[in-house]
Design a protein around this nucleic acid. Structure first.
Lengths: 334, 334
DNA sequence: GCTTCAGGCGCAAGCGTTTGCGAAACGCGC
DNA sequence: GCGCGTTTCGCAAACGCTTGCGCCTGAAGC
């Protein structure tokens, strides 16, 4: 039923070989012939058959991207910049979410392999070593997030939290704070631990005391819960550093509900700098993770890996920086 | 290099025909044989070759989803529920964004056709009639959003704003408000107009005056701008109904920056009920568009269309409802 | 005028599945 | 012991494209 290359060929009075070549630019075709072919394609409204094409070529123009959860505001910007980079090079993207579910994680990997993705950027920590190994066995180059070591066919893009952590702690210090409390991300997430560690180190360097670290699950509710718990402790924290913005929003809410104010009574710092951080009340001071750079970087790294014959992995790093808004303020004199 | 069906067949001592049939469950295979095949697949780590499969079958198990912009918080939840529904039926999703760019819109359509998607849900108004026609010509069933009429191979899922609008206006009225101002979405968006119209009608019914409608672009900044403009007018609005939540956040910010308070001085109502509406300050009263239902509904409608031989389209409707939080309050006595 | 060469193009063999036909093997009734 | 219905499985022809070879034509070289 659909229009085939042979139909185009017939109408343009050439062989399908020629049609294929003008379509792909794989060899010189006389301008006049080319014109006829293009015209025929247009007249007939020919669409190439992607599966047939892939099958014949043996490889795809697909780059895979595996993320945790599309509803997590961390990802959309990352996805978008990854996609944009792919589009520019005329590559397709195949996107899969794990939704924090190991089953879906496995199925995501399977799909990547089945679709014959040239390479896959894994921007979630939901994949276990077995899944990574599976990709490796299929000779699929992989980019991991915060997950060294690098090796053949496997690069790493790393978020450097140290700078952001230093700036955040430094900022609080300069506001007169000498103690902080931390609402961390889930302990089973490498990135969360890295950030918490970076904070602890920065605090140590600057002689700031870390009163407590309470673990959240990265969602606003857990920010609320964490802060409630802190407040119940009796001795109220005056500076809270959160593992991500969503928990920071929760924290602000809990502070408000306790009859306190941000930043007058307690300063709050988020992390990620999601779009809404600018529109919360007060606008959130936060450690920005440049997710657009991250997507671009993942793409670049992947492309390098795919192109190079040796497939030797590399590590690239994106820096984090504090962006100061209005959720942090001078420590109260005691 | 990769493991083929023939490898599996050899190891299991059967023909590739049999392997194919156990893989697809397309005919009965003796239990023992079946076991051997499965075992071989497992041992060899065989992955089916999706392109080859598609080519041979002539059709795919792909459902397409075209959205505007993944960074727009309206979409992720919709995407997720669409995906979930597909996953349950063992269908793959191919997702494309238009990013409000006609070129990308065209390319999205082309990709759907090339990939041989069984059907496509178009949840954006970026596709012009030509693109829709393109899909129709390729015999691809289509689900549109708020875009009648229904016809062969083309269903519509409609958001019913009237209920939500009535509830919103009624709520404001019961709080003592007798006038509202509207910050609408872009006028070239059908849905935005539908909502504005529903608001106007509800207002009319309840004898509420619509002081003004200023057009925004659905982003927070435009909410700020719109409210600034209203405030500059001198005569301050006491109730503002916004076309979406993001503009409502902007509106709240502008109100705050003008030294006023929400809801004491001005009540603000959003629309969509994105995740952050619960965590803004104050939490946003908003007309909820159930995006999860929407995704599910789009999927169901698409599936019906794909399955039925006659391909006759239908219209399904999702209702909207007000969710009352704290950005609305009693009108001030004048 | 004959050879050489390059530019332009077509032939046909894959690519790895699915699936319509059938064939073999087996059990049962008579 | 034979015919017949079942059950179980294999053969080989698509599917629509890409691409290695190689042919043809006309112009340039001598």
């Amino acid at each position: 039923m659909p229009v085939l290359m042979s139909d185009v060929a017939e109408r343009a009075q050439v062989s399908i070989t020629t049609v294929s070549h003008v379509l792909n630019g794989t060899r010189v075709v006389a301008p006049e012939t080319r014109r006829r072919v293009l015209e025929a394609i247009d007249d007939l409204k020919y669409y190439k058959n992607a599966p047939a094409r892939l099958l014949a070529r043996g490889r795809s123009d697909l780059f895979g991207l595996i993320i945790s959860d599309i509803e997590n505001p961390f990802f959309p910007e990352l996805i978008k910049s990854f996609e944009r980079a792919c589009l520019e090079k005329n590559l397709e993207v195949i996107l899969c979410s794990t939704n924090y579910d190991p089953r879906q994680a496995r199925s995501a990997v399977r799909r990547m392999i089945e679709a014959k993705a040239q390479g896959v950027a894994v921007m979630t920590s939901q994949l276990g070593p077995e899944q990574i190994a599976e990709l490796a066995e299929s000779e699929t180059p992989v980019i991991l997030l915060d997950c060294p070591p690098v090796r053949r066919g496997r690069s790493n893009v790393k978020i450097d939290y140290t700078q952001g952590a230093r700036e955040a702690i430094g900022h609080l210090r300069s506001l007169g704070h000498r103690e902080i409390s931390i609402v961390s991300g889930p302990r089973d997430r490498v990135s969360a631990n890295a950030y918490t560690a970076a904070l602890a180190e920065a605090a140590h360097e600057m002689a700031i005391r870390v009163r407590e670290v309470v673990e959240g699950n990265n969602r606003p509710e857990s920010g609320i819960a964490a802060v409630k718990q802190m407040l119940d402790g009796g001795d109220m924290p005056h500076a809270i550093v959160c593992g991500n913005d969503q928990m920071a929003f929760g924290a602000m809410r809990a502070v408000f509900e306790a009859g306190l104010r941000t930043p007058e009574d307690v300063s709050i710092v988020g992390a990620d700098d999601i779009a809404f951080a600018r529109f919360s009340h007060p606008p959130l001071t936060t450690v920005r993770i440049p997710r657009d750079e991250l997507g671009k970087m993942a793409f670049d790294a992947l492309q390098r890996l795919v192109r190079s014959k040796r497939r030797s992995g590399a590590e690239s790093v994106v820096a984090s920086h504090l962006v100061i808004r209005q959720s942090t303020g001078a420590a109260r004199k005691t």
